[in-house]
Design a protein around this nucleic acid. Sequence first.
RNA 1: GGCGGGUUGGCGGAGAGGUUACGCAGCGGAUUGCAAAUCCGUGAAGACCGGUUCGAUUCCGGUACCCGCCUCCA
Length: 496
Amino acid sequence: MVEIKLTNTRTRRKEPFEPLDPANVRMYLCGPTVYDRAHLGNARPVVVFDVLYRLLRHVYGEGHVTYVRNFTDVDDKINAAALARQQAGDPRPLEALIAERTAETIGWYHADMDALGALRPAIRGEVSDLAEPRATAYIPQMIAMIRDLIAKGHAYEAQGHVLFDVRSYPAYGALSGRSVDDMIAGARVEVAPFKRDPMDFVLWKPSDADTPGWDSPWGRGRPGWHIECSAMSEALLGRSFDIHAGGIDLQFPHHENEIAQSCCAHPHDEFARVWLHNEMLQVEGKKMSKSLGNFFTVRDLLDQGIPGEVIRYVFLMTHYRKPMDWTAEKVREAEATLREWHTFVEHCTTSSEPDSEFLAALADDLNTSAAISRLHVMLKEAMTESTDHFIDLRDTFVASAQLLGLLTAVSGYWTMPTAIEKEIREALGQVGRGLQEARRARDYDRADAIKNSLMGLGISVQLGKETCDFKWTTPHDAESAQKLLYAVGNILRTVR
RNA sequence: GGCGGGUUGGCGGAGAGGUUACGCAGCGGAUUGCAAAUCCGUGAAGACCGGUUCGAUUCCGGUACCCGCCUCCA
């Protein structure tokens, strides 16, 4: 069996991965707060941990891995969005507006992450809503956990709030390597007066009439941010499970607080054994932010015609624990490479095993960059092989790439010719015949004229001794594609 | 202020205490009516300063610069 090694943030070391139960490997990924479209940064953990999920399924079997990713559908940003709509004149009650907004956002999220080739979370291989729990469906479990924490002396009630008492948990700060005292010294936030300690965080807070709320022993209110993940992971994965993943920005405070809650509620269990964190995403060397004007969503990129598979490839070019820079140049490179690969594997359906060196790279702390390099080498080897061996190498290549979620049955749709592409191809075929005629007649002035006008359109012309091929990419937007077809038509008229 | 990450050849980006990363671009050759594409070959690196070592880009210490978190943003 392949030994998977993962860098565990908790121990700050790369360790061999040993699941608690190989028959049911359990992993939790912090999902989105559903108030708006997922931006590009949101997509990075989804893609890199999708690769981990695929790797685990490969090693332990599809039915032996459980992958849970939550939707946070109770949040002040959601409330604000709903309130804004009501104030803009929408007559419906706030609850309805919130429900609509979160449902709509979840739909977007699914569509966008599907486009990136991310598998849906699943319980032992079975995709269901259960594997994508919504916070609002687990309020009773959260209340139960909060009551337990109060009973155990780790939380206290103050002015309608329930707060976690960080001083009651000596290990607080261990995950992120911070001490409570240091953090207080550098605190820049105003501290609520009812907190015993400035670092205490909210488990439950009161709701007013304009805010969604649930009845609780502490009055009508709503949960704090962190308790949902503690409650839902316990409900779906148990009190001890294998992997908890997310962006490095969640390390503190979110994951630190999750640990505090879960470990204090269940001091004899381990909670999550391995913590994985991906580094942040940048855009052209800068942090993605609305003020810099380099902020965009996954949907923005898809709408620009950048295929999800290309976005995925760009993500996987960089190791997940390093900062990743999103650049136009990488998109170009990724698209060119994937086009080449798709041509290479065309019409290939495979049930082969992935390459062992490739697998070793992936198992070594998800080294997707090294894995991609291995794919390049494999391709080169396959190309120089004799025919019978070639098939084997190609199939191994495809099986390997598919472990990265690339070259799958659905991901390569964008390389399939569209209707207009077929028309362009047809017209070019006729131009090509005219060009060949000129060449055969040794009328090179005429041949060059045709060739140059095609190249002027960005169409690369490849002439063999007897052959004439064209390479071009159809513009992403329909209007430009139509223009290209028209321009080729013009050339065709001069050929005739 | 506290904590964490980064700095590799023209660009992107890995591994490894001594031996080719890999991709893109470049250069040379084959090929071509000319090109392109393809194939073959090839130069090019480790922010800076010290230390450990027979030997460091790889380990240790320091400096500089960049980035992130501490502000319910992955």
